[in-house]
Design a protein around this nucleic acid. Structure first.
Lengths: 224, 224
DNA sequence: TCTATTTTGTGCGTCATTGTACAAAACATA
DNA sequence: TATGTTTTGTACAATGACGCACAAAATAGA
């Protein structure tokens, strides 16, 4: 819930009124089509594919796509919004574990699974929005909000620890940013082709370091 | 020196032979033109600008640009290569300081200065290459090499500490990745519009955490 | 069956982008 | 001055991307 992007913008509105009263039925499922377009945009970026290409990837022709979803910006905004909500839900769930170390590892494992599924596209937002953030307000907005949301997600989880007995007076905001930065970087490294193994090694290392700072089990000692 | 991209590719070659024997002199300085094109690509990304736009930004017309630098991929490759070499030099120099904390802070401050100069474009590579990494081999290559190079830069510096008396047996590779990830994330956050102040707060926190792990001065305690 | 409504798919016109050809211009050398 | 060489800038052609118009198709309701 923390990073829903504003859907009140002009570019978000649907032009069609499905199931009003009568009319020819659609030959496509809206959610399924959006999913396919999301995958396409995820892989190529916003400027890397034309409306023709997006329409082909979704299995419908351009006029139908325009009528149902609007122009390219609107499609990207919908796809990005859906992605952000999905990530928020998955990460929040993973972070619910009682044991902090397990919670953090679960969150990173979840992210890595998403970043490396179906090829290795990394994070939809982190890997496609920055390039056009200065020329496209949609990209700018989704990037800002996602970066903030990730840090906030970790901070919220870390603050549960502050209530526990024996907690150290550590700068949790700084630690949250460190964890958020690690997640951001995992997205980039996945896009660059890193294996799941390497990505998990990196995130495990980061979790170990953070646990060390939080005053504890020193599994961050040099293995070799 | 660690992340020079391969210039032997076909798309890297110049088509012209300046100053061979005679011929009309150029009206532009090659390095200066490349710098202007680099700024343009940095801001808009590769697909975010046309060859016309690049030519205008460099102050020369499209045929001259094509003759001197090749197509858009070749121009991007040159700009990215030059950027990577510049970053490598600046960061290496900053990391030369004897005191580790000061060296790390200097490196991050240098990066932040670059990331926030002339607008707030973040890192040329981190912010423009990922989007097209899967559709453009040039972007794929420069992204891979830059990510590796940044980690390597930090690792090289950290390993100097291992030689000092009283050094802890910490996993330096993991710490290097943590520092590299922080730098990657700073690039993204700068692109998203974060102020120098916020960026420096984040990097200072990361440095403090790392110094804490390396066994020492605990300035990472919660200020509030 | 008839009407209203909505989607579908083809097709057209326009504009942007790219590559390249060509003549003129500006230089070095003999 | 004459020749060869290289860059410049205009121009043209081919392709791609985009928006929209339009008729046909497919439904609900009267």
């Amino acid at each position: 819930m923390t990073h829903k992007i504003d859907e009140s913008k002009h570019f978000m509105q649907n032009r069609t009124k499905p199931n009003a009263r009568g009319g020819r039925p659609r030959k496509f499922d809206e959610a399924e089509a959006l999913g396919k377009m999301q995958r396409q945009l995820w892989s190529t970026g916003l400027s890397g594919v034309s409306l023709d290409g997006i329409a082909r990837s979704a299995g419908l022709n351009r006029p139908s796509l325009a009528a149902a979803f609007g122009d390219k910006d609107a499609i990207y905004a919908k796809a990005a919004s859906e992605y952000a909500a999905m990530m928020d839900a998955r990460l929040s769930q993973a972070l619910e574990a009682d044991d902090l170390r397990l919670a953090l590892k679960a969150a990173f494992d979840t992210a890595i699974d998403i970043y490396t599924a179906d090829g290795a596209d990394g994070c939809f937002v982190i890997c496609t929005a920055p390039a056009e953030a200065h020329t496209n307000p949609v990209c700018q907005t989704i990037l800002e909000q996602s970066l903030e949301a990730i840090d906030a997600l970790f901070l919220k989880r870390l603050e549960k620890e502050r209530l526990l007995p024996g907690a150290m007076p550590v700068d949790l905001a700084s630690l949250s940013s460190l964890l958020g930065s690690t997640l951001n970087s995992l997205a980039l490294r996945a896009r660059a082709g890193w294996s799941q193994t390497k990505l998990k090694a990196l995130s495990d290392g980061a979790v170990d370091q953070v646990m060390t700072i939080l005053g504890g089990s020193s599994s961050s000692r040099d293995p070799g």
